[in-house]
Design a protein around this nucleic acid. Structure first.
Lengths: 340, 340
DNA sequence: CCGGTTACTGTAACCGGTTACAGTATAGCA
DNA sequence: TGCTATACTGTAACCGGTTACAGTAACCGG
């Protein structure tokens, strides 16, 4: 311990202490050139003694790589993100990268560049849903900055790798379940936010199921759910007040299902006897609702893992799959009328 | 657009294009020295034209500040983290900092330094619960690296600012509620992980409530819950199989409450008629359990906000409150016997 | 009119790593 | 023996910012 300065040891301190040049130290650290066994041993000792850790900034500056992935999201809270984040984080660290997260929460989504996360501090970006507009993507794409989109597709004219889940087929299947198994014909749809792609695909699945069974699409049976508990609740109340007749509800997501169940319950309408209910996402609360919710399970953690892997591949090789569509499965509980 | 090189513009490009020196550009960017109005205008134009963004690494290297906060956690998944993370992230960005997150998930918690996050890439660290052992903290503290602990207290001999919630008083209050309002006397306690401080405080609160009402503490009424659904479920099954008599259950957290409710339900024991149940945390699913769970609400997002604020204060001024204890409140639903 | 302050600007060193290039020593081979 | 390939090491330039220091011009008070 010859060092008493309060600041941390640098590579030059290590070099001096071990009696070698900084180049040798660097080579030993990065294992990119042979270093004699005795020098290696000496360096190892000195490094632990000095608690030496290479400074990330200096390294990035020299190599032009930050070894950091960025994640751009809309809102961290909510049931949806933990598994997504967990998957992303896992892959990120398995590959020795850091993860910088940033959420866009301003009311009017600011696109004021520079974003908190970008080429200036990361090697690539994971972009969730509509946390970045087409112009922003265009801008990144123009400078060939690696981008992978999660739960959305490339904007017009750009080819950016996307990772998402199969929304339409699963929606169709679950609605068909309501029709075929439970004989429902007037099925409400509480749609998600209009700009959300998941939402759009789920509506298409809903329509396809109706079509397959020759049930005419009735606009009166569609109302806003917005992936939001209270909005769905109010939509439901209004529909009931207007006396709209229906025998089932398919909600854009589980949050909306919660709101729908509350409204139905308050109105004294029994689920699933009078009305079947089905959601989408299989959030953690789904099995605990009354009745337990029939819904669609999406492999969200896997989406995170795959997205991070694709981004790393894009960074390292310049190659990534244009589209990864992960399978979903419907989980039948009681709210549709089964198991009761 | 004179620039055609694919790499991003540097400060020298901006300087050349605007006909000034790099020092002037830097000063304009950082507003730390006067720059003439006309030069300022010219720089503004050039900067947007070149899409110039100062590179974070180079800046950090020169200033010795990363403008990045690190977060060390145990496990990202679970209901608990989203609000915590949300609070941390909000404050971090309000202050122009970046957030680097890292979770320690290895079976045997590796303490192999360097951690993925530390002085080499951040200005300070938020440490959640036991994601870092005493030795690790000692090490950071020795080099005066800013640290703020979340949901745990300083290890012996160190003074590190802590932010957590009032566990004991709330536990005592909710157990007293079971005793006073619902006349319960044989109250099970499903304890959390032994090393978790929250868990320990909650047990102390439980014991204090018993003591206040002259109910002797009975070790037979304590079983492992581990903040885990299935462990609590099995503990409960065993207690029932052994024929232990009880009229209420206080679980270390809501996860354990879910397991307890499942076991009770399967055994045909009605809640809250035969047995009252109370949890802790007020997780998102709590109101949807059957019956809706009486529990304690902790201001988790606020914990995140305050912790980040304290860390920033520590970084900027060297000062922070040794201990911030945020208030909790009990939320009475039905599982205790109220509102039914 | 002069000395001193203020407003603004430029030059160049520096932060802590990486790496191109140059060099030495030894081994292998004819 | 000489010649080349290989193993290992060092010097110094470079990455893209910041900032100490120096310098010029305008302004201000007496």
């Amino acid at each position: 311990m010859t060092k008493t300065k309060s600041s941390a040891a640098t590579i030059r301190d290590v070099a001096r202490q071990a009696g070698v040049s900084v180049a040798t130290v660097s080579r030993y650290i990065n294992h990119n050139a042979p270093v004699s066994a005795e020098v290696a041993a000496r360096l190892e000792t000195v490094m632990v003694e000095l608690h030496y850790t290479p400074q990330a900034n200096a390294r990035s500056l020299a190599t032009h790589r930050t070894h950091t992935l960025g994640l751009l999201m809309v809102d961290i809270a909510g049931d949806f993100f933990p598994p997504l984040l967990s998957g992303i984080e896992a892959v990120t660290y398995e590959n020795g990268y850091d993860l910088l997260i940033s959420s866009i929460r301003e009311p009017e989504r600011r696109r004021t560049f520079p974003l908190p996360v970008g080429p200036h501090n990361t090697d690539g970006l994971l972009v969730f849903a509509d946390s970045l507009d087409a112009e922003g993507m265009q801008r990144f794409a123009a400078s060939h900055f690696p981008l992978v989109l999660i739960h959305r597709s490339s904007p017009e004219g750009l080819i950016i790798p996307c990772v998402t889940v199969e929304n339409k087929a699963a929606s169709c299947t679950i609605v068909e379940h309501l029709i075929e198994t439970h004989n429902r014909r007037r099925i409400l749809f509480l749609q998600g936010p209009g700009e959300q792609e998941d939402s759009q695909w789920r509506e298409l699945g809903y329509r396809e199921a109706l079509e397959k069974h020759n049930i005419p699409f009735d606009p009166a049976l569609v109302a806003p759910g917005n992936f939001d508990r209270v909005i769905a609740y109010h939509s439901m109340q209004q529909l009931l007040a207007r006396g709209v007749i229906f025998d089932a509800v398919f909600t854009g997501d589980d949050e909306a299902a919660v709101g729908a169940l509350m409204a139905l319950n308050e109105a004294g309408i029994t689920v699933p006897d009078a009305v079947s209910v089905a959601g989408f996402d299989d959030q953690r609360m789904a099995p605990f609702l009354t009745p337990p919710l029939t819904t669609v399970r999406a492999p969200t953690e896997e989406v995170g893992r795959v997205a991070a892997q694709q981004l790393l591949s894009l960074i390292r090789t310049g190659q990534a799959n244009p589209l990864t569509l992960l399978p979903t499965e419907i989980v039948i509980r009681c709210s549709c009328g089964c198991n009761s």
